[in-house]
Protein backbone atom coordinates (compact mmCIF):
# COMPACT_ATOMS: atom_id res chain seq x y z
CA UNK A 1 0.00 0.00 0.00
CA UNK A 2 2.70 2.48 0.86
CA UNK A 3 4.45 2.84 -2.45
CA UNK A 4 6.49 5.31 -4.44
CA UNK A 5 3.61 7.20 -5.92
CA UNK A 6 3.66 10.95 -5.60
CA UNK A 7 1.17 13.66 -6.52
CA UNK A 8 1.04 17.45 -6.48
CA UNK A 9 -2.32 19.16 -6.58
CA UNK A 10 -2.57 22.79 -7.64
CA UNK A 11 -5.61 24.74 -6.45
CA UNK A 12 -5.92 27.92 -8.50
CA UNK A 13 -9.53 28.87 -7.80
CA UNK A 14 -11.26 29.99 -4.62
CA UNK A 15 -14.74 28.67 -5.18
CA UNK A 16 -16.08 26.16 -2.71
CA UNK A 17 -16.26 23.33 -5.24
CA UNK A 18 -12.79 23.91 -6.65
CA UNK A 19 -11.13 24.10 -3.26
CA UNK A 20 -12.95 20.99 -2.07
CA UNK A 21 -12.04 19.10 -5.24
CA UNK A 22 -8.41 19.77 -4.39
CA UNK A 23 -8.80 18.89 -0.71
CA UNK A 24 -10.70 15.66 -1.36
CA UNK A 25 -8.15 14.55 -3.94
CA UNK A 26 -5.22 15.46 -1.71
CA UNK A 27 -6.66 13.80 1.38
CA UNK A 28 -7.65 10.77 -0.69
CA UNK A 29 -4.09 10.48 -1.93
CA UNK A 30 -2.72 10.74 1.62
CA UNK A 31 -5.15 8.03 2.70
CA UNK A 32 -3.77 5.76 -0.03
CA UNK A 33 -0.25 6.27 1.21
CA UNK A 34 0.70 8.48 -1.74
CA UNK A 35 3.21 11.29 -1.11
CA UNK A 36 1.05 14.39 -1.45
CA UNK A 37 1.70 18.09 -1.88
CA UNK A 38 -0.81 20.89 -2.32
CA UNK A 39 0.06 24.16 -3.99
CA UNK A 40 -2.39 27.05 -3.68
CA UNK A 41 -2.16 29.87 -6.19
CA UNK A 42 -4.19 32.86 -7.37
CA UNK A 43 -7.75 32.81 -6.03
CA UNK A 44 -7.03 29.46 -4.44
CA UNK A 45 -5.05 31.38 -1.80
CA UNK A 46 -8.36 32.68 -0.48
CA UNK A 47 -8.96 29.20 0.92
CA UNK A 48 -5.88 29.52 3.11
CA UNK A 49 -6.96 32.71 4.88
CA UNK A 50 -8.17 31.70 8.34
CA UNK A 51 -10.94 34.29 8.29
CA UNK A 52 -12.50 33.07 5.07
CA UNK A 53 -11.47 29.44 4.67
CA UNK A 54 -14.53 27.96 6.32
CA UNK A 55 -16.91 30.31 4.54
CA UNK A 56 -16.10 29.71 0.89
CA UNK A 57 -18.81 30.36 -1.66
CA UNK A 58 -19.96 28.79 -4.83
CA UNK A 59 -20.89 30.85 -7.89
CA UNK A 60 -24.65 31.26 -8.18
CA UNK A 61 -24.50 33.63 -11.14
CA UNK A 62 -23.51 32.16 -14.48
CA UNK A 63 -23.42 28.62 -13.17
CA UNK A 64 -25.58 26.55 -15.55
CA UNK A 65 -25.20 23.36 -13.51
CA UNK A 66 -26.67 24.91 -10.36
CA UNK A 67 -30.04 23.29 -9.68
CA UNK A 68 -32.92 23.88 -7.35
CA UNK A 69 -34.84 21.06 -5.68
CA UNK A 70 -36.49 18.92 -8.36
CA UNK A 71 -33.50 19.45 -10.64
CA UNK A 72 -34.96 22.74 -11.90
CA UNK A 73 -32.46 25.24 -13.29
CA UNK A 74 -31.48 28.01 -10.89
CA UNK A 75 -32.28 31.38 -12.51
CA UNK A 76 -29.17 33.53 -12.67
CA UNK A 77 -31.21 36.60 -11.74
CA UNK A 78 -32.03 35.09 -8.34
CA UNK A 79 -28.34 34.83 -7.71
CA UNK A 80 -27.89 38.60 -7.62
CA UNK A 81 -30.27 38.99 -4.67
CA UNK A 82 -28.30 39.69 -1.47
CA UNK A 83 -27.57 36.67 0.73
CA UNK A 84 -28.76 34.12 -1.85
CA UNK A 85 -25.19 33.14 -2.63
CA UNK A 86 -24.32 32.91 1.06
CA UNK A 87 -27.42 30.81 1.71
CA UNK A 88 -26.76 28.36 -1.08
CA UNK A 89 -23.10 28.06 -0.13
CA UNK A 90 -24.02 27.43 3.49
CA UNK A 91 -26.46 24.75 2.36
CA UNK A 92 -23.76 23.04 0.34
CA UNK A 93 -21.39 23.09 3.31
CA UNK A 94 -24.09 21.59 5.49
CA UNK A 95 -24.72 18.77 3.01
CA UNK A 96 -20.98 18.02 2.91
CA UNK A 97 -20.77 17.97 6.69
CA UNK A 98 -23.43 15.25 6.64
CA UNK A 99 -21.09 13.12 4.52
CA UNK A 100 -18.32 13.67 7.07
CA UNK A 101 -16.54 16.13 4.77
CA UNK A 102 -14.87 18.54 7.20
CA UNK A 103 -14.54 22.33 7.01
CA UNK A 104 -11.43 23.60 5.20
CA UNK A 105 -9.25 24.12 8.28
CA UNK A 106 -9.97 20.66 9.62
CA UNK A 107 -9.38 19.19 6.15
CA UNK A 108 -5.93 20.80 6.07
CA UNK A 109 -5.23 19.31 9.50
CA UNK A 110 -6.24 15.86 8.25
CA UNK A 111 -3.96 16.16 5.23
CA UNK A 112 -1.12 17.37 7.44
CA UNK A 113 -1.72 14.59 9.97
CA UNK A 114 -1.23 12.03 7.21
CA UNK A 115 2.00 13.62 6.07
CA UNK A 116 0.67 15.78 3.21
CA UNK A 117 2.27 19.19 2.69
CA UNK A 118 0.65 22.53 1.94
CA UNK A 119 2.35 25.32 0.00
CA UNK A 120 1.43 28.75 -1.33
CA UNK A 121 2.54 30.40 -4.58
CA UNK A 122 4.95 33.30 -4.21
CA UNK A 123 3.90 35.22 -7.31
CA UNK A 124 0.23 35.16 -6.37
CA UNK A 125 1.10 36.10 -2.77
CA UNK A 126 3.02 39.13 -4.02
CA UNK A 127 0.18 40.05 -6.33
CA UNK A 128 -2.44 39.91 -3.57
CA UNK A 129 0.00 41.54 -1.09
CA UNK A 130 -0.24 38.56 1.23
CA UNK A 131 2.37 37.44 3.73
CA UNK A 132 2.86 33.94 5.07
CA UNK A 133 1.48 35.12 8.44
CA UNK A 134 -1.81 35.97 6.71
CA UNK A 135 -2.30 32.31 5.84
CA UNK A 136 -3.20 29.25 7.89
CA UNK A 137 -0.28 28.09 10.09
CA UNK A 138 -0.17 24.71 8.34
CA UNK A 139 1.11 26.38 5.16
CA UNK A 140 4.61 25.00 5.14
CA UNK A 141 6.25 27.43 2.79
CA UNK A 142 5.81 29.98 0.03
CA UNK A 143 7.34 28.67 -3.17
CA UNK A 144 8.33 30.00 -6.57
CA UNK A 145 7.19 28.00 -9.57
CA UNK A 146 10.69 26.60 -9.92
CA UNK A 147 10.70 25.38 -6.33
CA UNK A 148 7.28 23.85 -6.91
CA UNK A 149 8.61 21.81 -9.83
CA UNK A 150 11.55 20.82 -7.72
CA UNK A 151 9.40 19.34 -4.94
CA UNK A 152 6.98 17.79 -7.47
CA UNK A 153 9.73 16.07 -9.40
CA UNK A 154 8.88 12.57 -10.53
CA UNK A 155 5.23 12.78 -9.48
CA UNK A 156 1.93 13.52 -11.11
CA UNK A 157 0.59 17.07 -11.21
CA UNK A 158 -3.11 17.86 -11.07
CA UNK A 159 -4.32 21.38 -11.82
CA UNK A 160 -7.66 22.55 -10.50
Amino acid sequence: MADNRKVSIIVSKGRLEDVYAGLVMANGAVMEGIETKMFFTFFGLHALKPKFMNRLHTAVVGNPALRMPGDLPFPTLLGIIPFVEAGISAMMRKEMEKLDVPPVDEFLEMIDAGGGEIYACKLAMDMFKLKKEDLHPLVKDVLTVGEFYEISKGGEIIFI
Partner: peptide
Protein backbone atom coordinates in the same frame (compact mmCIF):
# COMPACT_ATOMS: atom_id res chain seq x y z
CA UNK B 1 -22.32 3.83 9.16
CA UNK B 2 -19.73 4.81 6.57
CA UNK B 3 -16.19 4.61 7.87
CA UNK B 4 -14.03 7.71 7.55
CA UNK B 5 -10.66 8.78 8.86
CA UNK B 6 -12.37 11.74 10.45
CA UNK B 7 -14.64 9.56 12.55
CA UNK B 8 -11.65 7.60 13.85
CA UNK B 9 -10.03 10.93 14.77
CA UNK B 10 -13.10 11.77 16.83
CA UNK B 11 -13.38 8.34 18.44
CA UNK B 12 -11.35 9.32 21.47
CA UNK B 13 -9.08 6.30 20.92
CA UNK B 14 -6.52 7.98 18.72
CA UNK B 15 -6.19 11.23 16.76
CA UNK B 16 -5.73 11.23 13.00
CA UNK B 17 -1.97 11.56 13.24
CA UNK B 18 -1.89 8.63 15.64
CA UNK B 19 -4.13 6.61 13.32
CA UNK B 20 -1.61 7.06 10.48
CA UNK B 21 1.13 5.96 12.86
CA UNK B 22 -0.76 2.85 13.97
CA UNK B 23 -1.48 1.70 10.43
CA UNK B 24 1.28 3.23 8.30
CA UNK B 25 0.58 3.98 4.65
CA UNK B 26 -3.12 3.58 4.13
CA UNK B 27 -4.71 3.53 7.61
CA UNK B 28 -8.40 3.24 6.80
CA UNK B 29 -7.87 0.49 4.23
CA UNK B 30 -5.49 -1.49 6.43
Amino acid sequence: ETLTIRSVGKSGIVDIKGFYKLFPGAPLKK
